[in-house]
């Protein structure tokens, strides 16, 4: 267990101000818990993700696998002439299109849950009970030399509660 300082806010705009002030003072914000996505907070925390590139990769994989399977089954494994049409007519491009989407969705979903370590039965690590309701909670790791300054910044930026709690938050 690590000691953390949390600041509880009623307003998302104050959180953004607090993050920026903490950053100016050289203090690392571990995480912010919010009831809904706040893009200003993502921006202030400098979050980045490679998820779309992964999704593109899944798509390429899905397309190639589908093509290989369809080519193998209709041309190599059991070439069956239907209505005198060529065996390799690429009419199954429709299936390639749909299966690309199918495989990309499934893989992206799995990737999301693995990366976030979430799933049925996962324990919610919540610093405060109201973060899914109406509170915005800023979490800072407690370092003794800095804790006074952190508390001051949190209070000055409008936190309604400032507390010390034990919680493991992943960076």
């Amino acid at each position: 267990m690590e000691k953390n300082i949390i600041g509880v806010y009623d307003n998302e705009h104050q959180v953004v101000v607090a993050i920026n002030q903490l950053k100016e003072n050289g203090i690392q914000v571990k995480d912010v818990h919010t009831p809904f996505p706040v893009f200003e907070i993502f921006e202030a925390m400098g979050l980045k993700t490679r998820f779309p590139y992964f999704a593109f990769g899944f798509g390429v994989m899905g397309l190639s696998l589908t093509f290989l399977f369809l080519y193998w089954s209709t041309v190599i494994s059991y070439p069956l002439v239907v209505g005198g049409k060529p065996i390799f007519s690429l009419a199954f491009v429709v299936i390639m299109f749909v299966m690309t989407i199918n495989i990309t969705i499934v893989c992206s979903l799995i990737a999301f849950f693995i990366r976030e370590k979430k799933g049925p039965g996962a324990v919610a690590n919540e610093p405060h009970m109201d973060i899914n309701d109406d509170k915005f909670v800023l979490v800072v790791k407690k370092i003794d030399s800095e804790s006074l300054r952190v508390t001051e910044i949190l209070k000055n930026t409008g936190a309604v509660e400032v507390e010390e709690i034990d919680i493991v938050i992943e960076d």
Binding site: H33, T34, V38, I41, T49, S108, F112, P120, V123, I131
Partner: peptide
């Protein structure tokens, strides 16, 4: 059903991407 959701901004960020 909620799969351990904790409203973390990192989760939200990837969730929006998803």
């Amino acid at each position: 059903l909620s799969m351990g959701w904790n409203g973390s901004s990192r989760t939200w960020f990837r969730y929006e991407a998803l």
